[in-house]
Design a protein around this nucleic acid. Structure first.
Lengths: 232, 232
DNA sequence: AACTAGTGTGACAAACTTGTGACAGTCACG
DNA sequence: CGTGACTGTCACAAGTTTGTCACACTAGTT
């Protein structure tokens, strides 16, 4: 299992069915939506790893939804593949201008679609390709769902693991508590901002081997940052 | 590519489409026929490695075609999986009496179908995957269908054996309960996720020799993992 | 130095997750 | 038919995690 979630957004159920079969065979988890409203709700709640988005839909169009998603910081990073009809080159260009990561033209081969999808996922997050992330002896392996420091097993809870995973895939960048809540807890939770501080403390405590707790740094007045640059 | 050719015989094009997508994703070559005459011609001409045969079809029925194929020396060796409607136990028995190698009930999960298909092909061609797996003195031998720890025979039920077999062929990787259900129980079962926990307990109990139960590890909030790395 | 805003910390209750013993139902076998 | 093995489920026990809060401490400003 890839542990990846793909959202299929298309009003035609036969297309959704076909895509679901293909993606399940390739061991992705599938979500489905037949319109933009459903899609948006699922994107916020479920945080899919990639969205397959039909160009043309009743009500809010796919292109409009893509535009909205790319404008919102929380969802901007989710890769989008537009599904377009044959012969509509203008749609492709417009899709790419809006920020879609790729397009694929109906009718398409399931194998081609999965290959394209894999390529987009690889591009979107080169470090999250099921390979371990290694920083100064700190290692997070998504496949075995395990963290080690200098080969030594490190215990932590699920939330701390997710926080560390987020930090390791977004290094050298400061995030507010609010942003961390959205990215790590999800956009639909009601949690005090100060709770982030408590989990930061728990993560730091778990990482207290050979000074690795210092990788998680406070940015006073802003929030936190994961950085390999340690001030003396 | 597996180099294997599968013939899909079903009068419903939506079923054929779904099966084709699933099988192509699994890298099989597909042939299709919507009736028994077409099917028979393709079987003679193309010599598929396995036939997926719908029970019920207009004109000559699937069961009749199966009977004919099993009677003919040229085609008798081709494995047949009957596709039956839910609730028709008599059909299943009749199919197996006629010589079908397995049956699968609509609606079915593509993943289960491919797993079944692989099992049938493996049976038809027994020269595959029969070497014992050895981990820290724990040994699973698929040929004798036996498990030992440090040469000591270990008793366990069929489900625990299958679970262990899955783990030994997928080490160092965390799986959710849902994934374990799909892989070990099959995709078309209706079993509570918590049942996995009970079987994990039973497997751990069976492996309680020299601490081997610790190889089956809980990944809290996710599921389970089989790993040779043991917490201190 | 005093003050204030911001962050760290210990502790706790509630919620959640996993482990366990037990049981009923089913099935294969003698 | 009786019996033992197997399976799935359930209620309760045990263990862990989570979010919150009051207080302590620190950094920055005046």
């Amino acid at each position: 299992m890839t542990g990846r979630k793909i959202l299929i957004v298309d009003d035609e159920s036969s297309i959704r069915d076909m895509l679901r079969v293909a993606l399940e065979m390739a061991e992705y988890d599938c979500l489905e939506a037949s319109n933009a409203q459903d899609a948006h709700a699922q994107i916020v709640d479920e945080k899919p790893d990639l969205i397959l988005l039909d160009w043309m839909m009743p009500g809010t169009s796919g292109i409009e939804l893509a535009r909205r998603l790319k404008r919102d910081e929380v969802t901007a990073g989710i890769p989008i593949i537009m599904l377009t009809a044959k012969g509509e080159e203008d749609n492709k260009i417009q899709g790419l201008e809006v920020g879609a990561d790729d397009y694929i033209t109906k009718p398409f081969s399931p194998r081609e679609l999965v290959a394209r999808l894999k390529a987009v996922l690889r591009r979107a997050d080169p470090q999250s390709n099921s390979s371990p992330i290694l920083v100064n002896g700190l290692c997070l392996d998504p496949v075995s769902h395990r963290v080690t420091i200098n080969k030594q097993l490190v215990e932590m809870g699920p939330t701390e693991y997710r926080l560390l995973e987020f930090f390791l895939t977004h290094q050298e960048r400061a995030y507010t508590r609010s942003q961390l809540l959205d990215h790590v807890w999800g956009g639909n939770v009601y949690v005090e901002e100060r709770t982030v501080d408590v989990h930061i403390r728990r993560l730091r405590k778990a990482l207290t081997v050979d000074g690795h707790e210092d990788l998680v740094q406070t940015v006073r007045g802003t929030g936190y940052r994961f950085s390999t640059r340690i001030e003396a």
